[in-house]
């Protein structure tokens, strides 16, 4: 099975204190530590497992600037066979639809049976997978938390539904799936994997290679524009408990008792 996994380089929320920039248009991006979006790791792991079970290959693709190459390489060290970076000045400032457009062009250059994305990104809106499927006119399932290959035309996927329920679906290939965390346990990258990809050249495809008119993507093509970015003020009724761990626990228990949460 030929699988394409879309991955994104995001600020690592466990490593950074995220601050909003002076003009309130974005976060302060200087000096941030970046890593691969957590959800995407699960998608790559799932793809590697499918390949190991039924054969085929896994390609990792990312839309981003030259620094995004490091996450593509990292996911290749994890076990993906190929990597592609989609990078062009014209791509900067794309909205979700623009990103989906760029990815669609890359998908059409290959012969993929399955395209996986993470269910969402730390800094995203969870929209690219669905849009990409619609643009390709491929079937789509979101929030996938189990996956089983039936044959070379069909797969079976489990989806997480609110209320703790699950549903199972059969989907025709080719299709797009957005993968939920918990579907597997992503492997750690070992040294052998790193050494294997150390000197591999990762191809970079720009607008020209993909046959995309620059105006259709990037800032000029974006129909969704961010107009403000801020931390909301604390609302009424919210209370941050302060003190040592023991003090916080004590206060929390008092509160829960007072409000009838525990008896």
């Amino acid at each position: 099975m030929e699988i394409l996994v879309c991955v994104k380089r995001v600020p690592d929320t466990s490593e950074n204190e995220i601050e909003i920039n002076k003009d309130g248009s974005d976060i302060e991006r200087d000096d941030l530590v970046y890593s691969v979006n957590e959800w995407d790791n699960y998608a790559v792991e799932e793809a590697i497992q499918i390949r190991d079970n039924v054969g085929g290959s896994v390609t990792v693709v990312s839309v981003g600037d030259e620094d995004a190459e490091e996450v593509v390489r990292r996911e290749m060290a994890m076990g993906a066979d190929k990597g592609i970076l989609l990078s062009d000045n014209a791509f900067e400032g794309s909205d979700g639809r623009g990103i989906a457009n760029i990815l669609k062009a890359e998908v059409e250059k290959g012969k993929y049976d399955l395209v996986l994305t993470g269910a969402q990104a730390d800094d995203g809106a969870g929209q690219v997978g669905g849009m990409l499927a619609a643009m390709l006119d491929w079937p789509y399932a979101s929030l996938v938390n189990s996956l089983e290959v039936v044959d070379d035309k069909t797969i079976k996927v489990g989806r997480e539904i609110a209320g703790g329920n699950l549903e199972m679906n059969e989907i025709d290939l080719p299709c797009v799936l957005s993968i939920q965390t918990g579907i597997n346990e992503p492997r750690y990258v070992g040294i052998r994997g790193i050494r294997k990809v150390a000197s591999i050249d990762i191809p970079v495809h720009g607008a020209g290679d993909l046959g995309i008119t620059p105006e259709s993507v990037g800032e000029s093509g974006a129909k969704v524009k961010r107009i403000d970015y801020f931390t909301p003020e604390l609302g009424e009724g919210a209370e941050i408990l302060e003190g040592s761990t023991d003090e916080i626990i004590e206060k929390l228990i008092e509160l829960l008792k007072a409000k009838g949460g525990i008896k």
Binding site: S35, V189, I191, I194, R195, S199
Partner: peptide
Amino acid sequence: AEFNKKTVDMIVNEARNLAVKE
């Protein structure tokens, strides 16, 4: 020869990742 900056960074990052999480 294979231990260029990218490789060194990836090794150290993955060691950190593994160390902190596991």
